[in-house]
Amino acid sequence: MSVLVYTENWDGKFKKLSFELVSYATGVAKMLNTTVTAVSIGKVDENELIRLGNYGANKIINVNSDKLTVLDSQVYASLLSEIVRKENASVIIISNNNTGKSIAPRLSVRLKAGVGSGVSRLPLNLNPFTVYKRTYSGNAFAHLVIKSDIKILTLAQNSFDLIETPSNATIENMNPEIDGSLLKTVIKDIRKQSGTILLTDADIVVSGGRGMKSADNWGPLVELAKLLGAATACSRPVSDEGWRPHEEHTGQTGKIIAPNLYIAVGISGATQHLAGISSSKYIVAINSDKNAPIFEVAQYGIIGDAMKVLPKLVEAVKEIKK
């Protein structure tokens, strides 16, 4: 019996979420009195792999194959289910991001394992195995009992703190035979954003709403984000108007994020928007309407016109960065 965690990498480095996943898996393993096996698929060198040990991984399975550079959920799930069986894993931890969402359900069918998706705390109970998960887009949380022998948990991003638990991890290299004819997903084109901070990975997010008034007013907001090392985001009306690209839309039907700090500029805070950001640790709201619902979820607020407050805030940040 062990806890298995599927990590993700980007350009040869682990994404921050991978360390969160391993920290979480280590917590679950402690409850179950067992060990953590981390799986990495893709090209990651040994110095980077060993970093998973800092967060408690006891064993790292490094799967390296030229055929696995494209996410094909069918092939990835088949490979992972083999590893789960070989490692005799009883709990599998995966991110609740787009990649995780494409792998977890397939793995579930292969292993007849119930899925607790979007968990944000350690299991509440082991018998029956009960997890705490987000429902109703953050308006309620559920205690979900998973009845199957093998359990799959997908962890909400940025919901679990990194916990350093150094362990002497061993690395096991695996070069699986991949039947090329099974790979059905053909990539025609990749459009990567370059040089920007991933919105779903960002510690700080600066986000603008209708209060920004037009597509031409985003200069100070983007500058503020740059100074803070933050990603930029927006509310739905902004992306619908085409002021900002729809990839930046945070909210119920857009991206769901949980940064340490979310700065909402000129966003009133409709239920649908709050559904995408309410798990943020701290929320700052800047809005001219003192009755805007965003102030109900914010810890810090400034009542004022975004166009006037933003430049002052930018200057103040420049001052402290000196």
Binding site: G114, F141, S278, Q299
Partner: peptide
């Protein structure tokens, strides 16, 4: 394979400063 046994409200946030 799964069953919701209980719901709870999100933890309320402190008042805005």
């Amino acid at each position: 394979l799964t069953q919701i046994v209980e719901f709870e409200k999100p933890t309320p946030r402190a008042a805005c400063k």
